[in-house]
Amino acid sequence: MSVGSASLMRRKPASLSRLPRPGISETLPWVLLVILWILDTSLQPALWSSEQIGLTLANGMALVLVAMAETAVIITRGIDLSVGGMMAISNTLLAREVGGSTVSVLLWCAIVLIIGAAGGALNGILIGVTRLQPFVVTLATWSIFDGIALWILPTTGGSIPNSLITLPLGTWLGLPRTVWFLVLLIAIWAVLARTRSGRAVYALGSDPVAARLSGVSRRKTSIKVYAFSGVCAAAAGIFIATQTASGSPTVGDPFILSAVAATVIGGTSLFGGKGGFAGTVAGAFVFTLINGVTFQLGINSYWGELSQGLLLIVAVALHHATERGARARGRRR
């Protein structure tokens, strides 16, 4: 083999044209959100008031929290079906135990979040240590958590003190409290995603084999990410308590699949490794606003159901049409 002539071949350097650019899947939820927002406000002019914004946010916040949980887990190529159950546990426990004093409120909120972390960690251990599939494990723990919630509070009831109910209401420094809360959530995610653990989460979802070879501990990362999911779910349970002023053992069930839907519409791929919270927030509010708009238009709420289903399918199909080509080109070995 004549080595000399080898130097004639110059390979093109990895050029700047290969830098990542936002695609359809990232912008779609925002476009939808803007459209829906405009629709909503045009039907109900009062919506431009900060009070209404605050309320709308409050309406969707529980879903945002559950979707935050799902986003993290989905990035690792997993899924967490148990968030509904954990949400129910935190909701029912709070409704049953919390007293009127601030101390009690703080204490029980803390307890509930810790339980969320523990339950999530259990998921993480089962998934990270053994080779069990997230779908199956969290299907099982969903049932278990639902059972625990049923045991805590067999029927809707309990009571939530006023101090907790009024927490998300009102303003702080001119903006509704819920806005600040959302900002806080976004900030938390931004920080976490930029830590080494956060990178490990993305790596694990993007390419589990390469991640392991690069030193990522599947066990530790799974535990962290599912514990995070549990905490978010528990927080969602607290939030929904402020909305409904009561506890219900089945409160979480409708949220699970909507959270997955919001995540996926928001641009996070079920294949893992990509995505983020911002898109999920958009996706969650798209869902919330669809309900709002159908209500405003006086349309049968069942149209809302239907359109949410259709939207989900269409959004993901679009997402795929653009994603698959890009991924196939990128992943060629």
Binding site: V260, L270, E305, S307, L311, I313, V316, H320, R324
Partner: peptide, 18 residues
């Protein structure tokens, strides 16, 4: 269309319900 089964059937469930 390459929609994941979870999403496709979930969406269909909602459509059927509605």
């Amino acid at each position: 269309f390459g929609v994941q089964p979870i999403i496709m059937t979930l969406g269909m469930n909602g459509v059927l319900e509605g």
